[in-house]
Design a protein around this nucleic acid. Sequence first.
RNA 1: GCCAAAGUAGCUCAGGGGUAGAGCAACGCUCUCGUAAAGCGUAGGUCGCGGGUUCAAUUCCCAUCUUUGGCUCCA
Length: 578
Amino acid sequence: MANEEKLQKIRHSMAHVMAEAVLQMFPDAQITIGPSIDNGFYYDFDLPRTLVPDDLEEITERMKIIIKDDKTFEKIIVSHKDAKKLFKNQTYKQELIEAIPEDENVSLYSQGDFTDLCRGPHVKSTKELKAEAFKLLSIAGAYWRGNENNPMLTRIYGTAWENPKELRLYLKLLEELKKRDHRKLGKELDLFSLHEEAGAGLVYWHPKGARIRLAIENFWRDQHYKNGYEMVYTPHVGKAWLWETSGHLDFYKEDMYPPMEMDKAQYYAKPMNCPFHIMIYNNTKHSYRDLPCRWAELGTVYRYEKAGALHGLLRVRGFTQDDAHIICTPEQMGDEILEVLRFSLFMLRSFGFQEISAYLSTKPEKSVGESAKWDTATEALRTAIETEGLDYEIDEGGGVFYGPKIDLKIKDALGRQWQLSTVQFDFNLPERFNMTFVDSDGTEKQPFVVHRALLGSIERFFGVLLEHYAGAFPAWLAPEQVRVIPVAENFSDYAEKIVNMLKDEDFRVSGDFGTERLNAKIRNAQKEKVPFMLILGEKEVEAGTISVRHRSGKQEHGISVENFVARLHDQIESRKNE
RNA sequence: GCCAAAGUAGCUCAGGGGUAGAGCAACGCUCUCGUAAAGCGUAGGUCGCGGGUUCAAUUCCCAUCUUUGGCUCCA
């Protein structure tokens, strides 16, 4: 913790040093804010011209000189009035000072010729910063105070550490991230593609990607049936009436694809599946005995995302939610929530995510539904989280307007957090669609509707999974589980026989009967990250065995086919990673 | 949408006002091979799309689409 504080000081001080360097280059620059962030710092400037990458070098050089000058950071307390005078040419600073009550003093920090409005704290002197332990990383645009109506500033990002070794480690991590980038791996492993000319943010799943997706979906479906869900299928478009009734055209329109017109009616591509599931519910009258309804659908939805927000599979315009709606009585609600959470954790863990934390979002200022309902629902969520023993944080007032929710975040192999599951109450739709059930006392009551996605969206989940495993999927997910490689052409018959035996076991297997040499074939299979390679030559043919090369490089010789088959079945069924 | 950078062969990238270059992949031929790349050859590109400047544009200029890094937003 102490270390963390020290790093923060270093990074924040580094931001000041950078601001000084930038002011040396552009004396007219307007400075704004420059905090420390995870792994580094940034500073936002309003500059007379835009920066080019070469500028970063000059800024870096100037920063190094400032650091070596051993300038002390001095804290200065001035009156509100004096602060305004001091920064009279800095309009953004003026705005910041104005936000401070007039009777309060203002703290400034200065090093050398540079003084900045700042709460601190900082290192004592620039000599505590290491000229070899920072690196300016990128130039970006950022709105003043994050509001898109404000002017666009120039932001410079940098990373800073206590010593050069830590910097090197961090830069190495960045490289690793690049290597694992799902877009890169998706291309290399031929899993999916996106086509600008055919529409941005729309995913094309190639055969191998589809194999993995099917493995995910089949598992998902099996588990849903096991857990008391039914599958439904609903249309991809719906008439304006549906979206007017649901309220989407009031509160979600700017996220929807524009309508298409047919027979004088307007149809919208669905941004959510909920209204369709409710149509099914409302198709008949329901008794309390019918509930809970747990209806799941891998429902493909379309949402307008700003062009700049699109990012590989992680942010797209068409995606498939692993959606379900649970419609239940108030009495059932507590158990249902607990069950959903338990199921959700089971699913995430099945895919190799062990570190999971929860976020509980409570009632925002603007909301629909009685507050008693909000209270019981929120309590049900909290109880479920606590029953499962999850670490959680509360986002007070951070819920959506129609109900409280739990989000689950996982940590991947590189320690990055991703939000996947979400469990949300919906007090809006039952009202708008006038959903009812007949209770045991013969009166009509309104059911609870819970909307949930466990993996989030298949596309996003796939992207996260791809990066988590760096493309080396465990056998149960791998598009190709076994590659059979004859040492030379005259062992092809035996290899063919083995391939067929494995196919009969429903393994995803192929044989490499090309004319390349063994080394090349192994290299290809390694690059494709196939979990198992079976190498077959004279020895194997004679003994009627196989030689197994694991993706890890481990080799086993003289293995019987039965042994291998049994082990692979076991590994797939237990969803074990090698 | 906003700020910046980029778009050249299937992939990774070089080049640059005068008819376009490499490696890998593909295809053909030779080699029949024991745990991460055999050798030789062939083919492949309106240099993102549209305008402009020029005798000449892939190169310079403008516009546009897309991608990347951010901002905003979020499954």
